[in-house]
């Protein structure tokens, strides 16, 4: 469904992503892991068309996205939940979720809201609260709920568990796991072993702008084994 071939991304003269290739299939959860600053977020932003100048092929459902603007990528079924500043702070929780569902038919919009509240009951309790006044963890849940309300065919999520309490990581992992079960492709950048285990079947390891390995999640029994793959070759 999503296929990157020899993708390069640049911020000015800085060559952040240096020729990576990966694929994510329908209903497949795929992780992208590595240390901070290796180009994971830049990869997601490049796929969404946000920010960096890119070279190489980004194909979604067989069509090259290169010249497509961000909003048309979203309309083709690509979703993206960034790690920060993802909500509309002066809109209520409910308006935020609706904003994600506005491209759906009206009958679907109510269903999207109900699904979001089912996944994250705390959002239902705070439906009329301004999103900017939520805690960081609640904003993360809201951003994910809104990303799912768009009903994308492929959802990219950047650091969804960062800074969250374990109980909230469970909720987010559960929501992403359900999306995968429902046939959505999920490409997630995260460091939580529990979340990766719940959501993903495969993962790519990135180092200094390149992909250095592709693994099945079943290869790892403990978080330490996963971390060891990042560190391999680094003395």
């Amino acid at each position: 469904m999503l296929e990157l071939q020899d993708l390069h991304a640049y911020y000015g003269r800085s060559h952040v992503v240096q020729g990576i290739s990966l694929r994510v299939g329908l209903g497949e959860g795929v992780g992208l892991v590595g240390h901070n600053g290796v180009g994971k977020t830049t990869t997601l932003r490049s796929i969404m068309g946000h920010g960096p100048r890119t070279l190489g092929r980004i194909a979604f459902e067989g069509r090259d996205l290169h010249s497509a603007p961000v909003h048309s990528r979203a309309r083709r079924g690509l979703g993206f939940v960034p790690d920060a500043e993802a909500v509309f702070p002066e809109m209520t929780v409910e308006e935020n979720i609706r904003a994600g569902a506005l491209l759906r038919p009206r009958a679907d919009q109510q269903h999207c809201l109900e699904t979001a509240y089912q996944l994250f009951p705390v959002l239902a309790e705070r439906r009329v609260q301004l999103a900017g006044t939520l805690s960081g963890g609640q904003q993360k849940m809201l951003a994910l709920a809104r990303g799912l309300a768009l009903q994308p065919r492929l959802l990219m999520v950047d650091e969804p568990s960062e800074g969250l309490m374990p109980i909230n990581i469970d909720l987010i992992a559960g929501a992403l796991g359900r999306a995968v079960d429902a046939g959505v492709g999920v490409l997630v950048v995260d460091a939580s072993f529990h979340l990766l285990k719940t959501v993903c079947s495969r993962l790519y390891v990135m180092k200094r702008g390149v992909i250095t390995g592709e693994h099945q999640l079943t290869e790892f029994a403990t978080p330490d084994q996963l971390v060891a793959t990042y560190l391999k070759g680094e003395a």
């Binding site: 969404m48 946000h50 603007p69 961000v70 909003h71 048309s72 979203a74 309309r75 979703g79 993206f80 960034p82 500043e85 993802a86 909500v87 509309f88 702070p89 002066e90 809109m91 308006e95 609706r98 904003a99 994600g100 506005l102 491209l103 809104r146 768009l150």
Partner: peptide, 24 residues
């Protein structure tokens, strides 16, 4: 209304609005 909500969305977070399919 859709375009009204989109107007507010663009005002508050233009990048995020485009990610949600809003024609900025």
């Amino acid at each position: 209304l859709k375009y009204g909500i989109w107007l507010r969305a663009v005002a508050q977070n233009r990048r995020m609005a485009s990610v949600l399919g809003v024609p900025v």
